[in-house]
Computed example of a mutant assay.
Amino acid sequence: MENLYSLIMAGGSGTRFWPRSKTAKPKQYLNIFGDQSLLQDTIKRFASFTEEENIYIVSSATQAKVLEEQTPMLPKENLIYEPIGRNTLPCIGLAAMFAEKENPDGIMVVSPSDHLIENNELFKDTILAAAKIADEKDGIVTIGITPSYPATGYGYVQTDENITGNEKIKQFKVERFVEKPDEATATGYLKQGGFYWNSGLFVFKVSVFLKAVEEFAPELYADLRKIQADFGKPTYDQTLDTIYRAVESISVDYGIMEHAKNIYLVEGNFDWNDLGSWESVYLADKEKDENGNSGSGERILLDTKNSYVYAEDENLIAVVGMDDVIVVQDGNTTLVCKRENAEDIKKIVEQLKAENSNKYL
């Protein structure tokens, strides 16, 4: 599709991936699997069906150095920097303002930068199916992941009318978006059927999305128009900084998707993992050893099973007599925790911030 644009959101801090994820180089810039970073893998995935000059990235101004180092293939003017994080709706809205200058009727695909996605051909076919709906029906389309267990860490999307027709990939009108449920509620969703995990992948016509922002978030829309008016001017950086810091922090789900009526879902059956923690990295690794251990670097694991161990280059980690643990070494920091406590790693980062221990962040 000629008028296809991609937006990759890359401003996250990745606190649950400490100690490898640091302020200067968060999770999305790390090579968790293979030789390329998660961000570079995402760019490569989208470049298979989007011209590189049509790929935009929104990131934090504090990440400018590492972002530019990792994206020599993209025009620098396509790198958009937020002075402060304000959640996904302002982020997407800002990028849509840039894309509108190029092509107001262009189709934009929005994606996080840190997902692990395999079956790239099926992913491409799924995105193009969503783009067709966005183009023909003026719809805002989400990619729904078929749930494999009653996850409590994802939002869910309930589908309504099946509009698949003769298409190979299932397509639906959306009934509603629902917040992250407890386990009993999630179990009920799976038994009832018609519910999908919210992948955070969206596809829409730029003009249609901006119309929705104007309708459901009018104050944000007005602020974004003020910022757009200064694109290319010497005053742009100051205008962006002043206005953007004052906008409401709000997700696109809460701000748009829960209110708009022209919402559709395309079923995503490609291998997908949002890599939310070291535990999810362990579970996603298909190359575990005979004892169920995963990781990389120089390691000696004795009487140790079902563990993730990462050693930095030229360092060695030895683990003896421990099962179900995560051990990650990076520079002047080392993490050791039970796999079941992987979500609590962000509390370490919170404590370090409270203690102003910036040398470990």
Rank of each mutant, 00 (worst) to 15 (best):
S251Q: 11
E340P: 04
D182M: 04
G14V: 08
K305V: 02
L302H: 07
A284Y: 00
D41F: 02
P75I: 01
G188L: 09
L74G: 01
N198V: 08
F231T: 03
P72Q: 04
E248M: 09
N356W: 14
M108D: 05
L335N: 00
E279P: 00
E183A: 11
S357K: 15
V247K: 15
K305F: 03
N273I: 00
F209V: 00
K170N: 11
N358I: 14
P112A: 09
W278K: 07
T15E: 11
Q158D: 12
T304C: 11
L4A: 10
P26H: 09
L39W: 06
Y56T: 02
E68M: 11
V325C: 04
V157L: 12
T23H: 08
W18Q: 05
G155A: 13
K211G: 09
D313T: 14
A229G: 01
M108H: 06
E2C: 05
L361G: 08
Y221T: 05
E51I: 02
Y189A: 01
Y221Q: 06
N3H: 03
D324I: 02
G331I: 04
K137T: 01
P26V: 07
K173M: 09
L275D: 13
N119D: 15
Y154D: 11
K286A: 14
G139K: 08
L4P: 04
A99D: 02
T239G: 06
P90V: 12
I348Q: 05
E219W: 05
R339Y: 03
T42I: 01
G232I: 06
K170H: 07
P19N: 09
L79H: 03
T304N: 06
S21G: 13
N332D: 15
